[in-house]
Simulated scan of single mutants.
Amino acid sequence: MIIFNYLLVCLIFGTTFLAIKVGADAHTPPFFSAGLRFTVAGIILFLWMVWRKKASLALLFRKEVLLTGIGLTFGTFSALYWAEQYVSSGIAAVLSATGPMMILIMQTFVMRLKATALSIFGCILGFAGIVLLLLPSLTVTANKVWVFGCIAILIGEIFYSSGALYSKQVIQRFPQTSPIALNAAQMIMGGLLLLILSSFTEQVDIKGMLTTKVIGPLLYLIVIGSMVGHSLFYWLVAKTNPVFPSTWLYVSPLIALAIGMLFYGEKITWLMAAGVLTIIGGTICANLDSLKQLFHRRKTV
């Protein structure tokens, strides 16, 4: 059951990038779409946790939840949704996979934690992969907006990394609160911030959004991506350890690339493919030591 649910998480998270891309190509306002997705999904999950008496409404008024929402949802997905107007879903998934590598860099240079030689090599390899991925388009004027989109995703991953590190402290501060409730609360906060951003920067045509190309992906992202995917993810955390479920980041980019090429006609060059494999390889190397340690602990328990 654990392996089946893990593969299901990889498949779900791998397809969400294409769902975002389909909505973007249908000219859905990116910030409004992201805000609606996370606000609705967060409210449904949070009310369910309140009904099960595993969370209280007071949680929504905590600054810790707001700060987590800024990192994990607002900063990450405002950048991702905006960028997918110009970047393919497969490349967006690959660049998003740099999150664990950025967490390692922050732990090393900001939190002053010692990094192993393999981890440092992984970071260098991942950076080389990013250069390989972006280099072909740096000299092409028509593709500069594509490069800006890629850079935006990387900036979003800095927000994600900060939020992920901070969320570990938040979980420790609220030991009696379910992690699912904490995640739902931060999705609400991040989603509301996205809607506020949308109100200042976008013109939303509700009637124009009432099409299958807009409603379909949005419902998929709310129900399957945010509610089912995240619930399965936290179930895996409870049944295994915090790191094993996170390895979806190494599998889902390949799924996203394959789905994008097969069903959406997205193209990738040989040089870009080399960059993709280098980024994934660097991310695995950067986190291999922690993966080995946690799997060893799991076996000895």
Rank of each mutant, 00 (worst) to 15 (best):
P175N: 08
G99F: 09
L135Q: 11
G190Y: 01
T76A: 12
P100G: 01
L194Q: 07
L193Q: 01
I124S: 05
I151R: 07
A97L: 04
M101D: 02
G126V: 07
Q176I: 07
W82H: 11
T141I: 09
I105V: 15
P136N: 03
A83P: 12
A83M: 06
T177R: 03
S89I: 03
L60T: 09
M101C: 05
G99C: 13
G71I: 08
I103H: 12
L193E: 02
A181R: 13
M187E: 07
L182Q: 07
P175Q: 12
I196K: 03
M101Q: 03
I153F: 06
I155Q: 06
I188S: 02
A55M: 08
I188C: 02
F109M: 03
S178L: 00
A55K: 03
L95D: 03
A152I: 03
V147Y: 08
P179H: 05
A79P: 05
G75Y: 01
G191L: 00
L182D: 00
N183W: 00
Q85C: 05
F121P: 00
R173Y: 12
L133M: 15
L125F: 08
F77N: 02
S78I: 02
L67P: 10
T201Y: 04
Q186T: 06
L135G: 01
Y160S: 13
A152S: 06
L135S: 13
I151K: 08
N183S: 13
